[in-house]
Design a protein around this nucleic acid. Structure first.
Length: 373
RNA sequence: GCCCCGUUCGUCUAGUGGCCUAGGACAUAGCCCUCUCAAGGCUAAAACACGGGUUCGAUUCCCGUACGGGGUACCA
């Protein structure tokens, strides 16, 4: 199984590459490297309203900066709309899904009435096959809903262990919109089948989607992959890390003078550890030590203090010649040196960087402390 | 509301029934080293959410409670 392992990272291009997303990508990358698997990158741009090219570019840049190289892709989910739709229709033909003619207004009204207790009432499940076909033939707008079967859906989660949901708690969810585009769960399952993904490792905010997706795999007659749900990364207040916590994007940390290898190492230790007392570990050591079994279940607060400490350790280890290209622009910007000096006084600058790097926690601290020279 | 997940020092965590007087790391305090500041070394303070079981013995297993998080969309 190891040599046929296929994992993926599937961000939606609606913002920057957040540290949470980066951690998900990192764990997938680590396990693929460790077990000789294939790491696939897929951009989930099904939400056309919010997806942007700029966001896709930022995500790819962030991954490259961290050194999270992918083996296949990037693939774009929207390119698979035809297949997603065909599979949803196959479910319809097989009687595993049905057309729903309820309008958004109608649904919203019911939801308003029942408030939080709202559940789809399966009104359209009782529409006869013939009536459904003729209304569709008359091009009456409709969505396609998956008909959730009775029973319970369980899986052996790679990080949480046995996890189960009573199917009765799952609504007959929409798989194809009125405009014929697929909804998230349909697109993901269709793509993961298509890409022969064997292990789905993602944030645990997706845990409630998993039974729906397993049901879809089964209805489609496809083998169900292994699932593993990673704990959330939280802000200092214990809530899910978000923009209001300040720097949360990978690019923000690059900007703050954090080295990619330091962020890589730090993020790898959020929800995972090698079991011994090592903490400063290079990429190849991390690959060597990594295992899905040692991933934690508890959400972890992102502690920037410790990140900067770790960054300091990496600055110290990094040769001055590699640090200089990062520091020189900052020095020029502050007028501490001229452009010509970068080459002209290269040996002297290397010496300065060498002396200062051991005490700096951020790249710019080398610049700041170099003022005395 | 309902469903699901989680709960060890301030923070990241080790720990899978006795090895725990609960270990390490960041941060904090002190000392050493040192021309300064770091780095490094040593030391200090600091945690098993609560209540019931199970057991000769629970941080570890089970059940409740509390608290936190996630989901419950024609978002992903």
């Amino acid at each position: 199984m190891p040599d046929s392992m296929r994992v993926r990272f599937a961000p939606s291009p609606t913002g920057y590459l957040h540290v949470g997303g980066a951690r998900t990508a990192l764990f997938n990358w680590l396990i693929a490297r460790k077990l000789g698997g294939v790491f696939v990158l897929r951009i989930e741009d099904t939400d056309r309203e919010r997806s942007t090219d700029a966001s896709t570019r930022t995500i790819l840049e962030g991954m490259e900066w961290l050194g999270l190289t992918w083996d296949e892709g990037p693939f774009y989910q929207a390119d698979g709309f035809g297949r997603h739709k065909a599979e949803a229709e196959r479910l319809l033909a097989d009687g595993k899904a049905y057309r729903c003619f309820c309008t958004v207004e109608e649904l919203a009204a019911k939801r308003g009435l029942l408030g939080d207790e709202y559940r789809y009432d399966r009104k359209c499940l009782s529409v006869s096959r013939d009536e459904s076909d003729s209304r569709a033939a008359a091009s009456e707008p409709h969505t396609i809903r998956f008909h959730v079967p009775e029973g319970t859906t369980a899986w052996d989660d790679v990080v949480h262990g046995e996890t189960r949901f009573d199917n009765a708690s799952i609504d007959d969810f929409i798989i194809l919109r009125t405009d014929g585009t697929p909804i998230y769960n349909m697109a993901v399952v269709s793509d993961d089948i298509d890409m022969r993904i064997t292990h789905v490792i993602r944030g645990d905010d997706h845990i409630a989607n998993t039974p729906k997706q397993i049901l879809l795999y089964q209805a489609l007659g496809a083998p169900v992959p292994a699932f593993g749900h990673l704990p959330m990364i939280l802000g200092p207040d214990g809530k899910k890390l978000s923009k209001r916590h300040g720097a949360t994007a990978v690019g923000d940390y690059a900007q703050l003078g954090v080295l990619p290898e330091a962020l890589f190492n730090f993020i790898a230790f959020l929800g995972w550890n090698p079991g011994d007392e090592r903490e400063v570990m290079e990429k190849d050591e991390l690959v060597q030590a990594f295992s899905l079994e040692r991933i934690n279940k508890k959400g972890a607060i992102f502690d920037t203090e410790k990140l900067f400490w770790m960054n300091g350790r990496y600055m110290e280890k990094k040769p001055a010649a590699e640090l200089l290209p990062l520091v020189a622009p900052l020095m020029i910007e502050e007028g501490l040196i001229g452009e010509a000096e970068v080459e002209g006084r290269r040996d002297w600058l290397l010496h300065v960087v060498d002396l200062l790097k051991v005490r700096a926690r951020k790249v710019e601290e080398i610049r700041d402390q170099s003022r005395v020279f």
